[in-house]
Simulated assay, not measured.
Amino acid sequence: MTDHSTAPDSSPTDTWTLANAKARLSEVIDRAQSGPQIITRHGKPNAVVVSADEWERKTARKGTLAEFLLASPLRGADLELERVHDAPHDEMP
């Protein structure tokens, strides 16, 4: 991936140095509307900027825990589970 600090007329990429992202934050946010924008620090990916819509899609709850468990492929499987009856752990001071 090429950094945005290269040629201004080059095709947009999705990777920014921290300094360049700070200087061009408005552009980073605008471009996040069409795809994730990776911000690097010391040459390594450090953060990702995504649109609010994308964040909502990725973090939206998709059903309840009960629905998840009811849909499990293990539901109705004849599993034999053995419970360990160890002594309780001492509480730490």
Rank of each mutant, 00 (worst) to 15 (best):
D78E: 06
S72M: 03
W16E: 00
I29F: 11
D86H: 04
R24W: 09
R57V: 06
A71M: 02
G76P: 03
G76R: 00
A52Y: 12
E80L: 07
T2L: 10
R83N: 10
A71D: 06
P8W: 03
T13G: 07
I38R: 04
R41Y: 13
R75P: 05
D86T: 07
E80S: 15
A19F: 08
K58V: 08
E91L: 15
T6Y: 14
S26K: 14
A32Q: 02
R41K: 14
E82R: 15
L79V: 11
K58W: 12
A23P: 01
V48G: 02
L70F: 11
A71S: 04
A7C: 07
M92E: 15
A21V: 00
A23G: 03
L74C: 06
R41T: 12
D30I: 05
W55S: 10
L18E: 07
A7S: 13
P73S: 01
H85T: 08
A23S: 05
D53T: 13
P88L: 03
W55G: 05
T59C: 02
A47G: 01
P36V: 04
A19H: 05
G63M: 02
E91S: 15
R41H: 10
P45C: 01
T40D: 04
G35C: 05
Q37N: 04
N46L: 09
L18C: 07
S10K: 12
D30M: 04
S72A: 05
H42T: 14
L18G: 00
K58C: 08
E67F: 02
L69Y: 07
G76W: 05
M92V: 15
V48W: 09
T13F: 01
D90P: 10
S11R: 13
R57D: 04
K44S: 10
G76Q: 00
K62C: 04
S51T: 05
V84C: 07
V50Y: 06
L81G: 06
S34F: 11
L70Q: 13
W55Y: 15
N20M: 08
A77W: 15
L70G: 12
T64C: 01
D30A: 12
T2K: 13
D14I: 06
G35H: 07
L65P: 03
R61V: 09
E54P: 02
P73T: 02
G76D: 04
P93K: 11
V50A: 03
K44A: 10
F68K: 06
E54G: 02
L79E: 11
S72K: 00
G35F: 07
E91F: 15
I39H: 01
H89M: 13
L18Q: 06
T40R: 06
E91K: 14
P93F: 09
R31E: 06
S26D: 13
D9E: 15
A77K: 14
A7P: 10
Q37W: 04
I39Y: 03
A60I: 05
A19G: 08
I39M: 00
Q37D: 04
T59R: 05
T17G: 01
S5G: 09
L81E: 09
T6D: 14
A52S: 12
T2F: 12
K44R: 11
L69H: 05
I38M: 02
W16F: 02
L69D: 07
T13H: 03
V28H: 03
